[in-house]
């Protein structure tokens, strides 16, 4: 029933955009699986991580540290640091996720991409549809990609050849751009960017992005940054 209402609400253009991002995530999943197995880890490690953690950046970090001979506990801590931003995302999209049992799958399906898709929609119904369709689609594509990539080994280990490392920031940029037309949000975001970039050489990954929240000290709202419909 949830699925049917998602599909009825999504317009064709948005469904196509989400499909494209799912496909790109699947290709990154291929490379993640291949890199993990190529680095000497058994296939179950990247596959289990993808199912139960389902957060790309922290997964790359985890297998990178463990494959290089580092401690799995250090890898776990590094992964958690990278994922701390989800607290802020969860606060922002909780009405999109809904209440009751939906909060469980809805929280697990939270990614940068579907949060950005949801924030880019005008009304709550569209936001909900974008969030859930994006979350479910990315989960399916990502996990299939990881299994195939890990099993096939070195098909695609370097997605940089296809420029996918540029595609993902561009995806998020395109999705946040409408919200950045609001002056107060833009000021806070740009100051946040300066903080994050300045901290990158010194702090472990994950923390610089979190530090960008200091930009919110410079947030002076005139009118709502995003119309919050409820």
């Amino acid at each position: 029933m949830l699925m049917r209402s998602i599909w009825r609400t999504l317009d064709r253009g948005l469904a196509r955009d989400i499909g494209l991002v799912c496909l790109a995530d699947g290709v990154v999943g291929l490379s993640y699986g291949a890199i993990s197995v190529g680095g000497g880890l058994p296939l179950w490690v990247p596959v289990l991580l993808s199912l139960v953690v389902f957060a790309g950046a922290s997964q790359f970090l985890f297998v990178g540290i463990v494959a290089a001979g580092g401690s799995p506990i250090a890898a776990m801590i590094a992964g958690l640091l990278v994922n701390t931003r989800h607290v802020a995302f969860g606060l922002a999209v909780s009405d999109v996720i809904g209440s009751g049992w939906r909060r469980f799958p809805g929280s697990h399906l939270m990614t940068d991409e579907n949060v950005a898709f949801a924030m880019g929609q005008d009304d709550l119904r569209q936001r909900r549809a974008a969030y859930w369709a994006g979350g479910i689609g990315i989960f399916v594509c990502w996990n299939i990609g990881v299994v195939v990539g890990g099993a096939a080994g070195s098909v695609i280990t370097d997605t940089d050849v296809f420029g996918l490392d540029a595609a993902f920031p561009a995806v998020l940029l395109a999705l946040v751009l409408p919200a950045l037309r609001d002056r107060a949000t833009r000021t806070a975001a740009l100051i946040g960017v300066v903080f994050a970039l300045a901290a990158t050489p010194f702090l472990p990954s994950g923390l610089p992005v979190l530090l960008a929240l200091a930009g919110m000290l410079f947030y002076r709202a005139g009118k709502p940054a995003l119309e919050v419909s409820r």
Partner: peptide
């Protein structure tokens, strides 16, 4: 909402 946009940016 603004904080989420700041993080994504």
């Amino acid at each position: 909402a603004a904080a989420a946009i700041v993080l994504l940016t």
